[in-house]
Nucleic acid binder design. Structure first.
Length: 422
DNA sequence: TCTGGGGTCCTAGGACCC
DNA sequence: TCTGGGGTCCTAGGACCC
């Protein structure tokens, strides 16, 4: 038995925790670079604001309708997410943190009334963290997703909780769910399923799983069986090790010069190195990419990437930066208005797994390098990210994101600590 | 002026092995 | 009339998730 706990309008709810005067008011949160709308409170959804709407197109409307607008504040969301998960961990023997705002709990063998248990979970999370959540409970993950969605839309008599087995007619519930709203199915597959006469979740549940496997593959077969109540997707208790690490950003303004791109790529490679070491891994390949804006109608478009393999896996930011910048020099061409760049670390291996090499042309990480990286990470952890950084990042920061509307880091930085007056 | 940033899995096909 | 049988690895592309 699975419970899916999903935070309601998570980013918008996070902003509200430290600005309670926004209770009942429409809120939207913007993507990085203040590009487009990525989260909306219920009030904002009711106003018809679209997910993914470009901010510069809807900015006036938002102001006219009195919508509170925020740049995204991942320090805040990440920390509140951690707190929510901490509370949830006290309610089940095992759980899978599925995303920043979702968690599956294992409720198998629970002797209690599950709806009441779900309500207790929702109330406690709200009380202890300020974040409202919905809970879906069912015998498969896919059905728990459906139940959660219904609870969130106010279609459960128990309010924020819906236990699948209490439904008078689960068939009707599935029939009312458009097929592309089923977990694991989106536009492309939705269209193909509709062409086969499968338009809703009930039709998919009743379809022949072997036929679906032939037409779509094993993923669709599993979804079909899960809707029918046969569990095919177990809880993933330990997150599998990362296979790649990516850091990329759109620039605050378009970049033209190699120097500016080099500063950005250096910063991205540095950040990627930090993530890599946090995962206790080394990388055997580094890839860098750049491209112009896909929305630009006047200028010439250009996109390219370069990948370099390393003889020995590394966790040294200096080596990662060198690789990334050399790749950049190979793909950079003058005359373009670059909008975005990124660095990817590939072919990752555990830090402690040492593969010997007969004809290595470059040395692996030395003890000195390892100690240097650990010291860097320690300083930046205690003094704030970027307290020490590579000179190649430069000081110009022309590439930095726009984030005009960011709230304080209320839970992770002294400067953002809320003041309370009695 | 202005449109996000991460990830994963599966499959098919080609190249190769004995 | 007739062409063996069983594998692996790698990559590109397509689909999906939040």
């Amino acid at each position: 038995m699975f419970a899916l706990v999903d935070c309601n309008n998570f980013y918008a709810s996070c902003e509200r925790v430290f600005q309670p005067k926004l209770e009942g008011r429409p809120i939207v949160v913007l993507s990085n670079n203040d590009g487009c709308v990525i989260a909306r409170s219920n009030e904002a959804k009711a106003l018809g604001i679209e997910m993914g709407a470009a901010y510069f197109k809807v900015e006036k409307d938002l102001r006219r309708m009195g919508v509170a607008v925020f740049s995204s504040n991942y320090a805040l969301y990440g920390d509140l997410s951690r707190r929510v998960m901490q509370v949830l961990a006290t309610y089940a023997p095992t759980l899978e943190v599925y995303s920043i705002d979702e968690c599956f709990l294992d409720l198998t063998g629970m002797k209690r009334d599950l709806t009441a248990y779900g309500l207790e979970i929702a109330q406690t999370v709200r009380k202890w963290t300020g974040i409202p959540v919905s809970v879906g409970i069912a015998q498969t993950k896919t059905l728990a997703k459906v139940a959660n969605r219904m609870a969130k839309k106010g279609k459960s008599p128990a309010g924020p909780v819906l236990e699948w087995s209490t439904l008078a007619s689960p068939r009707d519930a599935l029939a009312a769910l458009p097929v592309e709203d089923v977990w694991g199915i989106a536009g492309r597959w939705g269209a193909r399923l509709r062409a086969l006469g499968i338009a809703n979740a009930q039709a998919l549940a009743e379809a022949d799983p072997m036929r679906l496997r032939k037409l779509f593959g094993v993923v669709m077969e599993r979804t079909c069986r899960e809707l029918g109540g046969v569990s095919c997707l177990p809880l993933e208790l330990v997150p599998p090790p990362r296979k790649q690490i990516m850091v990329s950003r759109s620039f605050g303004e378009k970049l033209h010069k190699l120097d500016d791109l080099m500063a950005a790529v250096t910063a991205f490679a540095t950040r990627a190195g930090e993530k890599l070491r946090a995962q206790r891994m080394r990388a055997r390949a580094v890839s860098v990419f750049v491209h112009t804006s896909p929305f630009d109608k006047s200028g010439q478009h250009y996109a390219n990437s370069a990948t370099a393999g390393l003889d020995k896996p590394t966790r040294d930011s200096g080596i990662l930066i060198t690789c990334a910048v050399q790749g950049l020099e190979r793909i950079y061409h003058e005359g373009y208005a670059y909008q975005r760049a990124g660095v990817m670390l590939l072919d990752l291996a555990p830090e402690n797994a040492e593969q010997g090499l007969l004809f290595a042309e470059t040395p692996g990480d030395t003890g000195r390098s390892n100690r240097l990286m650990d010291a860097l990470d320690r300083i930046n952890r205690t003094r704030g990210r970027g307290a020490v950084h590579y000179a190649g990042e430069g000081l110009g920061e022309r590439w930095r994101m726009r984030q005009k509307l960011k709230s304080a880091a209320s839970t992770t930085g002294w400067a953002g600590l809320p003041a309370v007056r009695a």
